[in-house]
Simulated scan of single mutants.
Amino acid sequence: MTSSNTSRQNNLVGIMTMCAGVAALCINDALAKSLMDHYSPFQIIFLRNMIALPFAFLLALKMGGYHGLRSTRVGVHFMRGVIWIAATVMFFTSIHHLGLAEATALAFVAPLFITALSAIFIARVGWRRWLAVIVGFMGVLVIVRPGAATFELISLLPIATALAYAFLMLSARFVDTRESMWTLLLYLSLTSAILTCIPALFVWTPIRAEDIWRFVAIAAFGSVGITMITQAFRFAEAPTVAPFDYTALIWATALGWLFWGETPDMLTFVGAAIITASGLFVIFRESKVASES
């Protein structure tokens, strides 16, 4: 098999893996939305991570041996755990009150936040990417519609989630580069379980028998989704697979309509299209700048 054929095959596998991971995370979000009527976000996050933790432990052990269980930057992992919990609590709260597709579309501004924060803390960002960031946030305004009668403060939570997610992605720079993604997944699950155990106790609700499978499923889909998305970036280059993160809007729209009868209005789709186009431009522009460097 030629190198070009191998590259095309790796790209195809990466794209398929990315799409499957995104679908798994959307199912995770739908399960969380179904649980929010009876449980606090802290309880959901705590149980999800406690169920997923043994699997994350075994995966890190199998893939990296005992070295995969150790970290020299435990403090950084705890900081990332705090950011991850904040992002998850805000997003779960938002999908409890908003449509799944609307919240997902607003959360798509995460790449734009990453670009803006990179310009402030890491490296210079060109005017084209800054323009894409500005256009992307205009898409946010189209969806949120501040000043309109339909405006809800709760719609700011997915945007705050995106900001927290951007900080989470940038904080990976402080993790020891010798640590594998399996170690990162293990410590993210561990710190999230530890940090949510006390808040969960204060808002604990007895678990109904009919909800047990949902907690197991949310742990499974959440872990599988994160792992598959991470793997996708190992199979293919980021500019190839990253745009397929936006397939989440398709899944979120379908799941929202199927289970809650949610139908986003036209302005939500218009705003989502603007945000998506801006995010895709940023991805391809950063790829071009990197290749030129």
Rank of each mutant, 00 (worst) to 15 (best):
A273R: 02
I274R: 00
L53V: 10
A20N: 12
A86K: 07
A209S: 15
A172G: 15
W257D: 08
G222K: 07
L112W: 03
V282I: 10
L201N: 06
R234W: 07
I154S: 05
I159P: 07
A290W: 02
A200Q: 01
V144P: 03
S40W: 07
L267T: 12
R145D: 10
S40K: 08
P206Q: 02
D211N: 14
W130Y: 06
D37V: 11
A248D: 12
T88S: 12
S189D: 11
F121T: 09
G136N: 01
T93A: 13
V142Y: 03
L61Y: 12
V289E: 07
A238F: 02
L157I: 04
A232F: 02
I207E: 00
G65Y: 01
R124S: 15
L201K: 07
A172K: 12
A119C: 06
C26Q: 15
S118C: 05
I218C: 06
L59A: 13
S118E: 11
A86M: 13
G222N: 04
L184V: 09
L184P: 00
R173W: 05
E102N: 09
F269V: 11
S7F: 12
W257K: 07
F259S: 10
A277C: 10
A87K: 09
T72S: 15
T93Q: 12
F55V: 14
E292H: 12
L35W: 08
S278K: 00
Y187S: 07
L186F: 10
A32P: 11
V82G: 11
T191C: 10
G21P: 07
L184S: 14
N10K: 14
D211Q: 06
A149Y: 10
M18C: 07
L201Y: 09
K33E: 07
S94T: 05
I212K: 11
C26K: 07
A116D: 05
L170G: 05
A149V: 13
N49F: 04
Y39R: 05
A105T: 04
W257T: 11
S278L: 03
I159A: 09
T247G: 08
G99V: 02
A86T: 13
A20C: 14
W127H: 06
S189N: 15
V241Y: 00
